[in-house]
Design a protein around this nucleic acid. Structure first.
Length: 423
RNA sequence: GGAGAAAUGGCAGAGUGGUCGAAUGCGGCAGUCUUGAAAACUGUUGAGGGUCACACCUCCGGGGGUUCGAAUCCCUCUUUCUCCGCCA
């Protein structure tokens, strides 16, 4: 969530930038400012009442000690009035704070100045494009048919065991998954990220911390018996490591990576373009997360983009990088780059990574701070990205590397798979 | 799952219903001394709201209650530890 002082001091900028998301926030921003003024007024009133009551209580104590019980009784009457007043004030105050927070929860992050204005993916800006699109042989197949042909992914079996969107990887398919995970983790740790194994379920506070709650509750699987949520991404447990944490300035930057399965209900998204691996309820992802000094976060974002680029290049997949427009940038992000692999057999781009700088938006809700050089606590910047999401990388490999003789394994993966071709 | 004990500042650890945002030690920071460092000594050192700055208010695991007044008493939840049971 945004910080109220920032909104107050940069009203025009906030409104102008939010317009990139096609949001007219004028009313919302005005409301935030007036609600906050109300909040301050109530707080001051309450504080004064409490101060008076504190003073009287001390006096009463003194009167009892000096044996003037009657005078004390008189003062007690006064304090009970004050108590009633403070009760009402604090109720009004907490209502106001809640109302203010509800407004703040509705306001997405302020896009960076680089973000193009726009509504949908059509307005995203392609900033980089690399890799040759292979010429496939006649009769090239989409990955779901390749998966069947070579018996490496069984979608029907997953449907039997669990339901649609829970594929079963078999034989060389399973081994290829494991290879990709190991390869990604090795690349990330080599780049300085510390590997973590994280819980796959999180509590309510964590889901709140990264903003899955209260808005996106329907997107997560909820274990109601214990009130836990299955993680939709490692970002949730990974970023919540830093909830209510004050880091030393020298501890920055923090870079972590982790492999986790991800669970998403994807309610309402069915259809032809979500076939096969394109959209799943359970999938694997290796995530990178950084906590940065505010002055360094955009440098770090560029570094993450280069890092992901390097991985895709090594896999020799044709890809492009998009700078997302305002309308397509996620709620918490200030600037997002998407990576897409071109699938020749499907003749379409598949999103395989999304790298974002959240600036202080997440940190504010998480209360993730660092002690700056003045000794003051200051909100840190958080960033994350996929490096990478497995299913569509797998789809890209299967479809782009298919030959008449089978699916060739990209060279960098061969040490991990132990085989060179799936046939 | 059962029985018991506990939760206090960065850490360790005191704390009688009022004078407690909280002793003390360690650590951190600044200074004295020193060519420099160490040691020693002196000072300083939680967070949030609020203010031009003060004042003032809130916070002793979370929530609720008793009381004029709660770190301290009561209820409840959570977590940790010890013992028992179960278990990869």
């Amino acid at each position: 969530m945004l910080q109220v002082p920032f909104i107050r001091e940069n009203k025009a900028l906030v409104i102008e930038r939010l317009a990139k998301r096609n949001i007219d926030a004028t009313q919302l921003i005005d409301d935030v400012v007036t609600f906050d003024e109300d909040r301050k007024r109530l707080q001051t009133e309450l504080d004064n009442t409490l101060a008076e009551s504190n003073t009287l209580s001390k006096e009463i104590g003194n009167l009892y000690k000096s044996g003037e019980a009657q005078k004390a009784h008189l003062l007690k009457e006064k304090t009970s009035q004050l108590k009633e007043a403070s009760k009402q004030l604090s109720e009004a105050l907490s209502n106001k704070v809640e109302a203010l927070n509800e407004l703040l929860y509705k306001i997405p992050n302020v896009p960076n100045k680089l973000v193009p204005r726009g509504n949908s993916e059509a307005d995203n800006e392609e900033i980089f494009n690399e890799g040759d699109v292979p010429k496939l042989h006649d009769g090239a197949l989409p990955h779901w048919e390749l998966a069947k042909k070579y018996d490496i992914i069984d979608f029907e079996l997953g449907t039997k065991i669990t339901g649609a969107g829970f594929p079963v990887y078999k034989g060389k398919g399973a081994r290829l998954q494991r290879a990709l995970i190991a390869y990604f983790l090795n690349k990330n740790t080599a780049a300085g990220y510390t590997e973590y194994q994280l819980p796959l379920m999180v509590n309510e506070a964590s889901a709140f911390g990264t903003g899955q709650l209260p808005d996106k509750e329907g997107q997560m699987y909820h274990v109601t018996e214990d009130n836990l949520y299955l993680i939709p991404t490692a970002e949730v447990p990974g970023t919540n490591i830093f909830r209510d944490v004050v880091l030393g300035e020298t501890e920055l930057p923090v870079s972590i990576t982790g492999y986790t399965p991800c669970f998403r209900r994807e309610a309402g998204s069915y259809g032809a373009h979500v076939r096969g691996l394109n959209r799943l309820h359970q999938f694997d992802k290796v995530e990178i997360i950084r906590v940065e000094h505010p002055t360094k976060s955009y440098e770090a974002l560029d570094g993450m983009v280069e890092h992901v680029k390097d991985i895709i290049k090594e896999l020799k997949l044709p890809y492009r990088i998009l700078r997302l427009c305002g309308g397509d940038t996620s709620f918490a992000s200030a600037l997002t780059y998407d990576f897409e692999v071109f699938s020749t057999a499907q003749d379409r781009w598949l999103e395989i990574s999304s790298v974002s700088n959240f600036e202080t938006f997440q940190a504010n809700r998480l209360k993730l701070r660092f002690k700056n050089s003045d000794g003051k606590n200051e909100l840190a910047h958080t960033l994350n990205g996929s490096a990478l999401a497995l299913p569509r990388v797998l789809a890209g490999i299967l479809e782009n590397y298919q030959t008449k003789d089978g699916i060739v394994i990209p060279e960098v993966l061969q040490p991990y798979t132990g085989f060179k071709i799936i046939n």
